[in-house]
């Protein structure tokens, strides 16, 4: 399968960038350790490991938008993508090749986050495993955002939009760092209308075994992920056929 060959290249390209490993895996772990240390000294319900872990996992996933976006935008800027567009690869080959390796890494990141949390005291049980699965649609959402921005913008713009914008925006609106209800008003309305807090809440519901509460939150994430992915695929495919790769 030709897409596997290109997917393998994309995986290598991301893994060989030390910043990727630092931010994608290292940074969320540092935040998890830091907040757990604070929690050990000054207990706050918000930062209890069962509540914190899904939030950190979702926060870590936001960096995968950056990796996917920068990879695609750099491939466009260096004409590497143009070289490949002249090859017999099809549109679906490109989409799979860019999406699957990043998804693989994102799932690995979720597992690493939960393993680190287990070391810090998170109980390993069915609920924790379910939470891992429940967070995966958020990975697809963030990868789709990366695919979309990488198709539209150059690598510096992607760095600004996602590196500075999306990671902060999604973190504030996720309810990981503070209770959204405490701010209330328009902030809560925006947070409720976006998928980030729902991704975290779905994970938290899984962690506490409140299975009935998972799907109402998860549908938001799955809906956003599917819509964003469809838009990203349409934009990428149009770019493939357009005069400006």
């Amino acid at each position: 399968m030709k897409f596997q060959i290109f997917a393998s290249r994309n995986l290598k390209e991301i893994l060989r960038d030390p910043l990727t490993l630092g931010f994608g895996i290292g940074f969320p772990l540092v935040v998890l350790l830091l907040l757990s240390a604070i929690q050990a000294n000054i207990p706050v319900d918000m930062f209890a490991i069962e509540r914190l872990t899904p939030g950190i996992a979702v926060f870590g996933l936001s960096f995968f938008s950056l990796f996917a976006g920068i990879l695609i935008s750099k491939d466009r800027a260096t004409s590497f993508l143009m070289r490949l567009f002249a090859s017999p690869l099809t549109a679906s080959d490109y989409i799979l090749s860019y999406t699957l390796p990043v998804l693989l890494m994102a799932v690995a990141q979720i597992f690493i986050c939960f393993i680190a949390a287990a070391i810090l005291g998170l109980e390993v049980n069915f609920n924790a495993l379910l939470a891992v699965v429940v967070v995966i649609p958020a990975a697809i959402l963030f990868i789709a955002i990366g695919l979309l921005t990488g198709s539209l913008f150059n690598d510096k713009q992607v760095g600004g939009i996602i590196g500075a914008g999306l990671t902060n925006f999604s973190a504030w609106l996720s309810g990981t760092w503070f209770e959204i209800e405490l701010v209330g008003g328009w902030f809560k309305k925006i947070a409720d209308a976006l998928p980030f807090s729902h991704a975290v809440e779905a994970g938290r519901a899984a962690m506490r075994g409140d299975f009935a509460s998972i799907l109402p939150h998860l549908w938001w994430v799955i809906g956003y992920a599917l819509i964003t992915l469809i838009i990203a695929i349409v934009v990428f495919t149009r770019k493939m056929k357009s005069d400006q790769v």
């Binding site: 290249r9 290598k12 390209e13 060989r16 960038d17 750099k74 800027a77 260096t78 004409s79 590497f80 143009m82 070289r83 002249a86 090859s87 017999p88």
Partner: peptide
């Protein structure tokens, strides 16, 4: 496309490979 290949104007290589 099966019969041709292109070397674009920019150095189109995979930098980390």
């Amino acid at each position: 496309k099966e019969k041709i290949n292109v070397s674009p104007q920019e150095t189109a290589v995979a930098r980390n490979l």
